Amino acid sequence: VDYIVEYDYDAQHDDELTIRKGDIIKNVKKLEEEGWLEGELNGKRGMFPDNFVKEIK
């Protein structure tokens, strides 16, 4: 499942992704941690907030 970024987010920890509006995040999975998703961007896998992105259908 792929998501498109709607709002910029700067990573706060090493396991998070810095994302920018218009980025496409690939292979996204829901995490047990409420409010977070995990996906791949530019060869890096990491977490990001689910309210900054929208699923591409």
Rank of each mutant, 00 (worst) to 15 (best):
G35D: 06
K44A: 09
D10R: 12
V1D: 06
V28W: 01
E40G: 07
E34K: 13
R20T: 08
R20G: 05
D50F: 10
I19M: 15
G43N: 11
W36Y: 11
N51K: 15
G46W: 01
D50G: 05
N27E: 11
V53A: 15
D10N: 12
K30V: 11
K29N: 08
D15Y: 09
L17T: 01
E16Q: 13
K26E: 06
V1Q: 10
I4E: 11
I25H: 00
N27Y: 14
E34P: 09
E34Q: 13
L17F: 03
L41F: 08
I4W: 13
D8K: 06
I24V: 07
D15E: 09
F48A: 03
Y3G: 04
D50R: 15
E6A: 08
E33A: 14
W36G: 01
E33I: 14
R45K: 11
G39Q: 00
F48Y: 02
D23N: 06
P49L: 14
W36F: 12
L41Y: 09
D15H: 12
L17H: 06
N42M: 09
K30M: 09
W36V: 07
I25K: 01
G39H: 00
N42K: 12
I24R: 06
E32D: 11
V28P: 02
M47E: 06
E55A: 05
K21I: 09
V5N: 01
L41H: 07
L31Q: 11
I56G: 02
Y7L: 14
I19H: 01
Y3D: 00
D2V: 11
A11W: 02
I24N: 03
K30W: 06
E6I: 15
I19R: 00
K57S: 15
I24G: 02
K21F: 06
H13L: 12
E55P: 15
E40V: 12
E40F: 11
D10Y: 15
K26A: 10
F48N: 01
I19F: 08
W36K: 07
D8S: 07
Q12R: 09
V28H: 01
L37H: 05
E32G: 10
I4Y: 09
G46I: 05
G22V: 01
L37F: 05
N42T: 07
E16Y: 07
Q12G: 08
Y3F: 04
F48P: 00
V5P: 01
I24M: 05
V53H: 02
G35V: 03
I24Y: 05
E55R: 03
T18R: 04
H13G: 08
K29A: 11
L37M: 13
H13A: 11
L37K: 05
L31E: 11
K30N: 10
I4S: 10
K44D: 09
L17I: 07
P49I: 07
Q12V: 14
G43W: 05
E32F: 13
Y9L: 04
L31I: 11
E34S: 08
K54E: 15
I25G: 00
L37I: 05
V1R: 11
D50S: 14
E55Y: 02
G22L: 05
K30F: 08
Y9R: 15
E40P: 00
K54H: 12
Y7I: 08
E6L: 15
Q12N: 08
G39L: 00
D2K: 15
P49H: 15
G35F: 05
N42I: 04
A11H: 04
N42L: 10
T18F: 05
R20I: 07
E33R: 14
N27M: 05
I25M: 05
L17V: 02
D10T: 12
K44G: 06
K21E: 08
E6M: 14
Y7N: 12
D23A: 13
N27I: 04
V28S: 09
K44H: 11
V53D: 03
V5T: 13
L37Q: 03
K29Y: 14
N42Y: 12
P49D: 03
E34T: 11
K26Q: 08
Y7T: 14
I19S: 02
H13K: 14
V5H: 01
Y9E: 00
H13D: 10
I19P: 00
D14N: 12
N27S: 13
G22H: 06
K26I: 12
Y3I: 02
P49V: 04
V28M: 02
G46Q: 01
F52G: 04
K21L: 06
N51I: 06
L17D: 00
Y9T: 01
E33M: 11
Y7G: 15
N27F: 10
G46D: 01
F52L: 12
I25Y: 00
G22F: 09
V53F: 02
Q12W: 07
R20F: 06
F52A: 11
E38V: 12
E38D: 13
L17S: 01
K29I: 12
E32L: 14
R45F: 11
I56T: 03
D2N: 15
K29F: 15
E32W: 10
L31D: 05
F48T: 01
Y9F: 12
E40Y: 09
V1K: 14
Y3A: 14
N42F: 10
E40W: 14
K44Q: 13
D2Q: 15
E55W: 02
E6R: 05
N51T: 15
K30I: 08
V28T: 07
L41T: 06
I4R: 07
E40Q: 11
L37E: 01
R45H: 08
V1I: 10
G35Q: 05
E6Q: 08
G39S: 00
L31T: 10
N27L: 13
G39M: 00
Y9D: 00
H13E: 11
H13F: 08
E55I: 06
V5F: 01
E33W: 12
Y3M: 05
G35L: 04
A11I: 02
R20K: 13
T18E: 05
E33Q: 13
E38L: 10
M47H: 07
V28G: 15
